[in-house]
Amino acid sequence: MDKTDQAILYELQLDGRISNQELASKVNLSPSPCLRRVKQLEERGIIRGYTALVDNEKYGLPITVFVRVELVRHSAEVVKKFEQEVSAARNVLECFVMTGRADYLLKVVVKDLHDYEHFVRNTLQRMDNIASIDTSFAYGVVKHANALPNTL
């Protein structure tokens, strides 16, 4: 990947609906080579897809919760089952495997505290092999970036 590819990716991350003509102009290419590069980035899996960014609050899920989960055991079976169950949980937007005390960090969205309680009681606590659940509520956002930084 070169600087032009990174410039294309940056612009697409800022506006995934940008026309090829406008994208080509922003990255100093003619339209045909620009479109060819975008297609190559898609084929190589660097561009995984396109999506709409939705406002959580206006959607009705204004509360973001970070949940640290520690497992009782770490066998391949336990880990696989936990990861499958978390992947199926609709309120979990992201799940990271962590170093340190917690094994996983979940980013969860809910409509209110009652909804979070329901999520814990009916989703998390029903999963096997969870040793602990530690919760932090986000009460503000300082920065949320959609574009990866240029590295070249």
Score class of each variant (00 low, 15 high):
residue 144 H to N: 09
residue 119 F to P: 09
residue 2 D to V: 08
residue 27 V to Y: 00
residue 69 V to F: 10
residue 133 I to D: 02
residue 81 K to A: 10
residue 100 G to Q: 07
residue 133 I to L: 07
residue 73 R to Y: 10
residue 74 H to V: 07
residue 77 E to Q: 15
residue 61 L to W: 05
residue 93 L to S: 13
residue 65 V to R: 04
residue 62 P to L: 10
residue 120 V to F: 14
residue 24 A to C: 03
residue 29 L to D: 04
residue 151 T to S: 05
residue 100 G to H: 08
residue 112 D to C: 08
residue 57 E to R: 15
residue 118 H to E: 14
residue 4 T to C: 04
residue 125 Q to I: 05
residue 98 M to D: 09
residue 31 P to C: 12
residue 3 K to W: 01
residue 88 A to C: 01
residue 56 N to E: 05
residue 23 L to T: 00
residue 73 R to Q: 11
residue 114 H to K: 12
residue 16 G to W: 00
residue 84 Q to F: 05
residue 25 S to Y: 08
residue 63 I to C: 05
residue 131 A to D: 11
residue 44 R to V: 02
residue 50 Y to K: 08
residue 126 R to Y: 04
residue 129 N to Y: 10
residue 115 D to W: 08
residue 95 C to S: 15
residue 109 V to K: 09
residue 81 K to W: 02
residue 62 P to H: 13
residue 58 K to V: 07
residue 78 V to Y: 04
residue 93 L to A: 08
residue 108 V to I: 13
residue 24 A to K: 01
residue 40 Q to R: 13
residue 13 Q to L: 02
residue 6 Q to G: 02
residue 103 D to R: 08
residue 152 L to H: 09
residue 110 V to P: 11
residue 27 V to K: 01
residue 10 Y to E: 00
residue 93 L to D: 13
residue 60 G to F: 06
residue 109 V to L: 14
residue 91 N to R: 12
residue 56 N to Y: 10
residue 34 C to P: 06
residue 4 T to F: 09
residue 106 L to W: 09
residue 118 H to M: 14
residue 126 R to G: 12
residue 19 S to I: 03
residue 12 L to A: 04
residue 68 R to N: 15
residue 111 K to V: 03
residue 76 A to V: 12
residue 72 V to A: 11
residue 79 V to M: 14
residue 79 V to E: 14
residue 23 L to V: 01
residue 108 V to Y: 11
residue 25 S to Q: 13
residue 85 E to Q: 13
residue 23 L to F: 01
residue 25 S to V: 04
residue 50 Y to D: 11
residue 54 V to Q: 05
residue 68 R to L: 13
residue 74 H to D: 12
residue 147 A to E: 01
residue 27 V to L: 00
residue 23 L to C: 00
residue 74 H to G: 12
residue 86 V to C: 10
residue 123 T to W: 15
residue 37 R to V: 00
residue 65 V to M: 15
residue 25 S to T: 05
residue 149 P to S: 03
residue 104 Y to D: 13
residue 71 L to F: 05
residue 31 P to D: 12
residue 97 V to M: 12
residue 125 Q to M: 12
residue 69 V to G: 07
residue 80 K to W: 06
residue 22 E to I: 00
residue 76 A to I: 09
residue 116 Y to T: 06
residue 104 Y to P: 13
residue 143 K to A: 06
residue 53 L to T: 15
residue 46 I to Y: 11
residue 74 H to Y: 07
residue 32 S to I: 13
residue 48 R to A: 14
residue 14 L to P: 02
residue 30 S to E: 15
residue 47 I to C: 08
residue 97 V to R: 15
residue 139 Y to V: 08
residue 85 E to L: 05
